[in-house]
Design a protein around this nucleic acid. Structure first.
Lengths: 349, 349
DNA sequence: TAGAGCCTGGACAACGTTGTCAGATGCGCG
DNA sequence: CGCGCATCTGACAACGTTGTCCAGGCTCTA
């Protein structure tokens, strides 16, 4: 059979991207195209002898099924997309990993992309994933208008939002109890005698930031403490601004005696600032941070379970895929106050 | 034109996955199929008026190009794959993000998967990515035999290994100077008067672990210090084993006065153990860790630049794609010793 | 006004796979 | 020995897109 192997033997100058196809395998094995397909997919109705010949041809040619063609034919891609803010952020790593594990359990691959907190980039990414026909989409919103996803959802792309709710559309969302967690954290400080408590957080246009701020206000109000503007810093997006905000709160005639920080990045920066201060200032941070227990004092935090967020969202997504669309739901996961010392410091008035 | 919109208007019961195609758009806009393709791809040769009609139809139907079909036709997917150990590990987050940024700059998406340090899963993942016809592959090896990738590489899949070299095949690799970094770190301890220095690292079958161990031995030998078996713990894969290893080294008649740790996970565990000890033990760790500067004492580390590893690898990959295959290269990035206190403690003999 | 040349638009095949369906082969039984 | 049935195999169309190529209409010039 000199010419059944023609193509493989004469890869023209090893030209780029010339891969064997099922047709080539069929030719080499001396069987029909569909028989190869059957073998590759483990479908019944192939005699052991034929199967062996096909397997040998596959081996010899280094054939690998082209999933693009398969997807085109079958409709499903067995892959889901994840749009998050920044993979380098220690909060999103575990979340992404959890989504991946659930996907894997369902035989799907995860494609993820970082929006860098840019709504435009979020949309661009999400739509690129849809163009690749992911079966589902897990989105950590950067923007606040997700109507651009409506055609996709209508077309059957399962969609779940995590960490922050979708904007202007009705969709599944899984989030932490940001409001309650922040309220508890601030109440904890109040219970330890603080009254002048600072809040440093992200821009309130971000849902989580707004909710945590709301929790702060609620705790203060519950305790009958009027909040002064000078105690609050919103939109602290980079370390320099956080640093300045903290330093301002800690100076002046009536400095704050405790600070509540709105996310892990802010917390880390504030820890640095406090380490430089001679005074002891209490601190409770939203989000747990690694090694928080080894610092002096240990850092008291309101911890959310990033992995649980991811897992819950992914499971919800596959439920959508398995049983068709159901009414959108809002799932809220509890937070946990972990006391380690910094939140139990008394006011240093 | 009642029946040009037939399909869109009568989505049969909104059946799953029924999406408009270019054909539908063409029908609705009253133009030919190829004209729609031209508009979608921004190709020239369409009058403004026609283009407007097509755009309107696209908008109205919520059309989104099916990239699977596009890939099938064009051969390139504009996506690359990344196989790493665990996204939740703070070392890989920034690496992955760096790869993503380079990919984005080249208009490509990143698909990544975690091998969980399991060679079989690594292979499964890498081949799944190849079946999806990624243009290139960045692999952080878990296994030590990558011949399974030979057909893929021959077929034109650009491949770069990171952090550890490929096994049994000749391919591009980007790594840190693990040997030199470890040697420098240990030499640093020796320079501060230590002679009984412990080493706790991963299983030596992992290339980085073996290299760092080699660096440790070299530094000791350079200083004329014979290494005792009791000072070395390999295969410390989980916190319990690390803890036990550290405790053993620190007990007995002639305990080590300093420890060199082989990666960030080990370092963190050892820090915990040392925090419980009354004695002061010097410590230098491989890999930087967050907040290392705020601990008492600050943790001296041999830092590698995860982002630079990822960036370099991805750039190398796209060079392969742009200019065809070139001779495989081995790129080694320097490490940096960051002194913060723990590595400068004198021996507490 | 006719011819040449340009520009726009569309018909058609092909990419590699899978679902459908019908044909071929072999077997057992009457 | 012949028929029916079960089992195995392969031809063909279709998935949605893009590249090729040609047709038709337009403008411009001689």
């Amino acid at each position: 059979m000199p010419d059944t192997t023609r193509r493989a033997d004469s890869l023209p100058g090893n030209r780029y991207g010339n891969r064997p196809t099922m047709k080539d395998v069929a030719a080499r094995a001396g069987v029909g195209l569909k028989t190869v397909s059957r073998v590759v997919n483990g479908e019944p109705g192939v005699t052991p002898d034929t199967e062996r010949r096909v397997q040998e041809a596959i081996e010899a040619l280094g054939f690998r099924r082209n999933d693009s063609a398969r997807v085109l034919r079958k409709g499903r891609t067995a892959s889901i997309g994840l749009v998050l803010e920044d993979l380098a952020d220690p909060f999103y790593g575990p979340l992404s990993r959890a989504v991946e594990e659930v996907a894997r359990a369902h035989g799907a691959l995860l494609i993820n992309g970082s929006s860098a907190e840019d709504p435009e980039r979020e949309q661009e990414l999400a739509l690129a994933l849809c163009a690749r026909r992911v079966d589902g989409l897990v989105v950590i919103p950067a923007g606040d208008d997700h109507r651009y996803l409506e055609p996709e959802i209508r077309a059957g792309v399962a969609t779940v939002f995590v960490d922050r709710p979708a904007g202007r559309i009705d969709a599944d969302v899984v989030l932490s109890d940001n409001y309650g967690g922040a309220r508890d954290g601030v109440a904890h400080l109040i219970a330890h005698g603080h009254r002048r408590i600072g809040f440093i957080g992200d821009m309130p246009r971000i849902h989580t930031a707004a909710e945590r701020l709301r929790g702060y206000r609620a705790a203060m109000e519950d305790a009958g403490i009027p909040v002064e503007d000078a105690w609050m810093s919103l939109g602290a997006t980079n370390p320099e601004r956080v640093r300045r905000a903290a330093e301002e709160m800690l100076s002046g005639p009536a400095p704050v005696t405790a600070i509540f920080t709105g996310n892990n990045r802010v917390t880390v920066t504030v820890i640095r600032v406090l380490a430089e201060q001679s005074r002891h200032v209490a601190l409770v941070g939203f989000d747990d941070i690694e090694l928080a227990d080894l610092l002096q004092p240990g850092v008291t935090v309101v911890a959310q379970d990033a992995a649980a967020l991811g897992r819950t969202a992914a499971e919800r997504l596959f439920r959508q895929l398995d049983s068709g669309r159901v009414a959108p739901e809002r799932i809220e996961l509890p937070t946990r106050l972990i006391t380690r010392g910094s939140g139990e410091l008394p006011p240093a008035d």
